[in-house]
Write a protein that binds this DNA or RNA. Structure first.
Lengths: 348, 348
DNA sequence: CTGAAAGCGCTTACAG
DNA sequence: CTGAAAGCGCTTACAG
């Protein structure tokens, strides 16, 4: 069934059928009804490729999940507690707005080209990029092609400086505020020996959380100690090894701030195996508030990152930008919230 | 940049450019190289809409997640521990094969039409449908249009009887074997009073798990008791209420078989609040082996459903079917595996 | 208000 | 082996 068939059946031309479908104002109510009736009767929907080719939108957005770090490990996207709900939330939100979502995962530097390619092939009207190590080069190239892009967790300064012009929105959360709050909470409980299990520092949130941790300690008259400065890279396995090494030194802080919950849960696993009690012997704090955070025992004290709101905002922004061809780089920041559960207590 | 530009730059016709791109055999190596060089130089990729319109594939598959039951609740797909990894695994597998994935969520009966519409609009070459209450009517209609479909968790008999003809593959797991194994495990530990927290019975796996539970008890000379036959509908909230009511009766079984892990975890929450110890006072068994199952305390004894393998198989099958226009309905069954952890022990 | 026609960017018989 | 031409199914100036 093509528009021509509908036209014949309704006794009008293809032009009129198209006008009805695209809701043009200059078609009389009676004609519209007549055409609509046939369309409905035959369950007709225009061929999306033909529409797109003739100049209409694809009504599709691309969602690109970048996770280079985990490329060769078993920890692919589908096991990632952070991205998984984000993907689902984007799909939900976009579908509710009648937009299709093409999801792509980027596992290697070589795969970055796929982002550009998807746009070159005109498969989508706009894109959302989330993940670690987002390639600024690709972002600049897509921006130069004129496609709207929403980027999650990226330094706004870097974008401004390195991309310059484009239709770009950057969404971050208040990692600084969140870090400050949870460190202050530890400080106020009486902790002075607070270690850190840091995330990836080529990640904006990784850097902010790390730097805010240090700044907050120093502001409170405490010098961060190198031996409690662990690198976990946001990855469970690496975090686990770092904590094992820490335990071996026999010199534990009274609290450990883990820059994401995945690492915090890994740390708790190691400590539990070593018979070190959380929170009695050591307090563990996380970040993100992923779903398992409330399920582990003791339940994790952490900073809630509003991942669903971020996803919703990303879709809203990207759809808004499709209709607006103005070159414009904007930044949005979503509120984090301290979530106090059971994994932290006063030091003994 | 269009194929015509490439043609001009390479000194050939559009036909030849197309032949090179589509890897036709009848173009001399030298011509091929010449064209390829220009293509690479300008980073050209054909417009996907134009290709599709001219008769090529879309290189896109649709993934439809149906979860009607959760329509009006806060528990949308993105919070679902079962579908989430499935979505991610399908994307991973398909992307690795160079295929795009259009993901759609179906939350209301009205949304079923979207599945058909996506095919009518020619947005994809084939589809994978997963979830609860998959609409056989829509499946039959899409099948009648000739599109390949892979359906997860559906009664093969129903498909055969109600759809009849189509390019359809059904994938299930060995829910019968899995249920039998975990019930036998409980029985062998000495349990005789084994209750069930059942799933949705309009779901194939829900029915099989329920029926196999009953059958296994009866085969072992035990009559299932009505007061321990709880309806949880696979949904945390409903399961919770059912367990609360059970606890109120004061008449607990020594073991409770929960037809999915989500419900098992809910049950453990309720019991923990009521100060009933798992596994000392009551053993809890689950099904699915979702990620939190190993994280809760006590870690959940459950049946592992190979969700990643199912996703991989679904992609493999669907891609295979795209090239093969034979009408054929086939069935695949993936192996489950008993996973013994800490939530079950001998009855006192 | 409405239709005929051009055009979107490809692929694929067809003819040579 | 290769090009000219038709055609895929739409949308949109254009002309009336």
């Amino acid at each position: 069934m093509r528009s021509e068939d509908i036209a014949r059946l309704a006794g009008v031309s293809r032009s009129t059928v198209s006008r009805v479908i695209n809701n043009y104002s200059n078609v009389p109510e009676e004609t519209r009804r007549k055409v609509l009736k046939v369309i409905e009767q035959y369950n007709y929907s225009p061929n999306s490729s033909a529409r797109a080719l003739a100049g209409k939108r694809t009504d599709t957005i691309g969602l690109f999940i970048v996770s280079i770090a985990e490329r060769n490990s078993a920890t692919r996207v589908y096991r990632n507690n952070y991205f998984s709900p984000f993907i689902d939330a984007v799909i939900d939100t976009a579908n509710a707005r009648g937009v299709y979502v093409l999801v792509h995962s980027i596992f290697s530097v070589h795969d970055y080209a796929k982002i550009k390619q998807a746009f070159i092939e005109r498969r989508m009207d706009a894109g959302i990029i989330v993940g670690t190590e987002k390639d600024i080069g690709v972002i600049a190239e897509v921006a130069a092609m004129g496609y709207p892009l929403v980027i999650i967790d990226y330094s706004p300064e870097d974008i401004l400086r390195l991309v310059g012009k484009g239709r770009i929105a950057v969404i971050n959360s208040t990692d600084d505020k969140g870090t400050r709050e949870i460190i202050k909470y530890l400080l106020d409980s009486g902790h002075k020996d607070i270690g850190i299990l840091a995330g990836r520092d080529n990640t904006y949130s990784g850097r902010v959380r790390y730097e805010t941790y240090r700044k907050t300690l120093i502001e409170n008259g405490i010098e961060p100690r190198a031996e409690w400065d662990l690198k976990g890279e946001f990855i469970k396995k690496i975090a686990e090894q770092a904590v094992v090494r820490l335990v071996k030194t026999g010199n534990l802080p009274t609290a450990l701030f883990c820059c994401n919950d995945d690492m915090a849960i890994s740390a708790m696993d190691v400590l539990s195996r070593e018979n070190i009690k959380v929170p009695d012997d050591i307090s563990i704090a996380g970040f993100d508030d992923i779903m398992p955070a409330s399920l582990v025992k003791p339940a994790l004290t952490t900073v809630h990152v509003p991942i669903y709101d971020i996803a919703g905002k990303a879709v809203e922004l990207v759809l808004g930008m499709i209709g607006d061809t103005a070159m414009n780089i904007s930044t949005y920041t979503m509120e984090t919230k301290l979530v106090i559960r059971e994994s932290c207590k006063k030091p003994v």
